[in-house]
Design a protein around this nucleic acid. Sequence first.
DNA 1: CATATCCCCCAAAGCGCTTTGGATTTCCCT
DNA 2: AGGGAAATCCAAAGCGCTTTGGGGGATATG
Lengths: 343, 343
Amino acid sequence: MNLKELSQNLGLSQTTVSRALNGYPEVSPSTRRRVEEAARTFNYSPSTRAKGLATGQALAIGHVIPLSSKHEMVNPIFGDFIAGAGETYSRHGYEMILSIVDDASERRVYEGLKSRRAVDGVVVHGPRMDDPRIGLLHGLDLPFAVHGRASGYDQPYAWLDVNNRSAFKRATDFLFDLGHRRIALVNGLEIMDFAHRRRDGYAASLTDHGVDLDPALMRSGEMTEVFGYECTRDMLNSDDAPTAILCSSLISALGVRRAIEEKGLVMGKDVSVITHDDALSYLQNGSDVPIFTATRSSVREAGRRLAEMLLTAIANPAMPPQTQLLEAELMVGSSTGPAPRKD
Amino acid sequence: MNLKELSQNLGLSQTTVSRALNGYPEVSPSTRRRVEEAARTFNYSPSTRAKGLATGQALAIGHVIPLSSKHEMVNPIFGDFIAGAGETYSRHGYEMILSIVDDASERRVYEGLKSRRAVDGVVVHGPRMDDPRIGLLHGLDLPFAVHGRASGYDQPYAWLDVNNRSAFKRATDFLFDLGHRRIALVNGLEIMDFAHRRRDGYAASLTDHGVDLDPALMRSGEMTEVFGYECTRDMLNSDDAPTAILCSSLISALGVRRAIEEKGLVMGKDVSVITHDDALSYLQNGSDVPIFTATRSSVREAGRRLAEMLLTAIANPAMPPQTQLLEAELMVGSSTGPAPRKD
DNA sequence: CATATCCCCCAAAGCGCTTTGGATTTCCCT
DNA sequence: AGGGAAATCCAAAGCGCTTTGGGGGATATG
């Protein structure tokens, strides 16, 4: 069923039917009702393509997911973020189109999206330090919003980020308050902007408390369970083992815990652990009482909001780019406790 | 830059330029070269919408991700599957469009996709037993392919599935061979078709070995870490604790291991564990030697193949629906060992 | 009663592409 | 040189929608 058929069926012009369906005022309430009802019974909905052609809008947002060719790893965050963004899109009648791209051909994908007029805007995932995509997108004149930030790019652009620095500073401070002095950091890849900022927060707290950074306690890598395990195992086997560990991901934290328990130590007593928790739906941090003390911020909520932000930016092109900095909440669980006294 | 401008620039008609670019024979090699070069320098690529309108194709595949309103849980498999499918699509010039949908409005979403002519076909995720979507899609006359199967629907349709039954039967047999008799199953939600089949395989093995099913050893739920932990803790605390556990997901397996170790037992010695491993990129089962003995099947590869299958089905509408049954490989890790002798 | 004002509605153009049906030119053979 | 076939190219229609620019009929105004 298309517009033409529907309008013939109603004995009206396409114009009138179109207007009735799109809420224009030039149509009497009675005909509007009639049209709407017919549309419903015939199960008519306008072709997105034709509508887009006519209006110049795509009614779609592109998500370009970088897939590091080295690691071939899909960010575990991704599913939940997309779910959040998807909620927003469907509420606004937008489609979400996804491209999985190895980092080598990213540029071409953005250009393609633009020149094929496939989307009204894009969401940038996983920004790295000095990420070239921001500049590229500015040049392409394609509306965009970034999940995270790219330090080093100073022009204004739309982003939404967790305050990673303050979250990790606060978490480290918390550990100091509990009496810990040897605090380790099991971080994500520090080319990633978020990881860099977390390290910054961690370092700032150490400096505040007059503790020197110890490279042996600062690990960085792809945030897998095994990575958390191996880092922790190695550090705990050293002479000057940490009494507390800060971890960038709940998945790695599971590995951290494993290494601790394997060594016959008790988490929250012998070694304290704080992890960042993205509140992923399939990785809950305990049921009622959190297992891990965590800096928590829902990535799904981030998806919802960032999508909202991008849509308003598209609707109001003149508006200056918006930004949102979310504060993670520190949830105290049973993985932290006072530093063990040296005997 | 659009076709019109490009053709004016070249002093050719739109027809010729279009033909040159799309590989039609009615154009001389020299002009074709000229056109292709111009297209490249002007960074021209045809508008997907216009092309779609003219050809009647959408050049897009829809993925409808059900989001159980009860659990609000995004399947952790999803990211990797999509990554696999995305590879195939981009190789064929297809777009992937994603809809996140609570199960109540699934029907409407499929109908919408169809009537808006937004996609050429859809992929069905997470089929449940007697899933009504298969029938619905048959009725809509929209090409589709299912990741998994829906027992109880007997008309032919395109699907790709892991042989869950044989994988779990084989894994259980393996445990019997090691001398285990009390074998527990920590399964996914058994409304899900895959979980049902796994249970079937497990049950078949037990029957083969003359062991009665014990409801106390058969758990089913959302496959989180906590779920694996709680099931295992409870079972190990019983008088007649299992000596081996079969687990449906690597994530839950992490919880299983935690419960085992918390009780001071050693995995692979006191309690054996076999888990299914979807080979998710962010959840590797150990680095070189697998930690868990596992039935392994890459969900990413499944994505690649299913996408390929759907595209060929779209290209050859007359072809009968294809199916693919992948066998999981049993990888022996260090989580299994001979059943402990009773003293 | 004539004129101005709304209210509803319509015909047709245009969005950027593909494709049909021809027109023109070139080439080959006799 | 003349005829037909091949090789190139083009104008125009059409895909399904929105939107511009009217056009009639009912209602209000003088």
